[in-house]
Design a protein around this nucleic acid. Structure first.
Length: 234
DNA sequence: GCAAAGATTTGCT
DNA sequence: GCAAATCTTTGCC
């Protein structure tokens, strides 16, 4: 490699490889950790490092929106990989998914949390725009949850269909810079899907970057378990 | 056409 | 720790 005599600036991010998303969804979910979510649609460029995701795989997965087969809402999940699927949950939060696996095989990865690397001021303003009040949290917590990622990046259902692997797309995924240490990945059960029943509520299909300050509240509580009952060491 | 539930977040008790 | 906010999508009559 030509190491440079005088680096001009950060190397341009390379688009996240579509072939990774076309393959096994669980492997793709792990590979997305550390990658960048980038938005060039506003005045300010937004960059977030992906630190928490969840996988939803196939029509048999009772926790997946694809469980009832193809519907108007989830149709993009049945399409080609690398496409954005944004849905509204609980009537107020927009959640971003990346479609995976080849056409006709419904699967997607929910982006549950990102660590702001650039544009945190604009992310904060975007959240305040939606809430109408001041958001008093540290930068690291601005997109620490699936609904918060949507709010910080100003996403809504009209973003469904965007190609996240297209370098020209205003909303896209970029690979982590070469040389960056790969994150330590932890796997846990998925959140908020008790209705799905076993084994779907227990399969460890949520993946997160160990030690990140930007994990969702669900991740934090799941990892910060109460110590066993009884006397404990000082 | 109507009723129920949801891949969440926030604020109060 | 628990319940409200809020509205779209889906299932059933």
């Amino acid at each position: 490699m030509t190491e440079g005599s005088g680096v001009a600036g950060p190397p341009p991010g390379s688009p996240f490889p579509r072939h990774v998303l076309a393959g096994d969804t669980l492997a793709a979910a792990r590979a997305l950790l550390g990658a960048r979510l980038v938005s060039d649609r506003g005045v300010e460029r937004l960059v977030g490092r992906i630190v928490e995701v969840e996988a939803y795989v196939g029509e048999a997965d009772r926790a997946s929106h694809a469980r009832m087969g193809r519907t108007p809402r989830n149709r993009v999940m049945f399409g080609p990989p690398g496409i954005a699927y944004v849905y509204l949950v609980y009537g107020m939060h927009h959640c971003l998914n990346v479609v995976t696996e080849p056409e006709s095989r419904p699967a997607a990865i929910l982006i549950r949390a990102v660590e702001p690397l650039a544009g945190s001021g604009a992310m904060r303003r975007a959240r305040e725009r939606g809430r109408g009040v001041r958001v008093a949290v540290p930068d690291a917590r601005l997109a620490a949850g699936p609904g918060l990622v949507g709010a910080a990046f100003g996403l809504d259902r009209s973003d469904t269909g965007l190609d996240l692997c297209d370098p020209a797309s205003g909303l896209r995924l970029e690979a982590a810079p070469a040389g960056e240490a790969p994150p330590t990945v932890l796997a846990t059960p998925r959140i908020g899907i008790a209705y799905a029943g076993e084994p779907w509520t227990s399969v460890p299909w949520r993946f997160l970057v160990a030690g990140s300050p930007s994990l969702s509240g669900g991740a934090a509580s799941a990892l910060t378990r109460r110590p066993a009952p009884g006397p404990r060491p000082a």
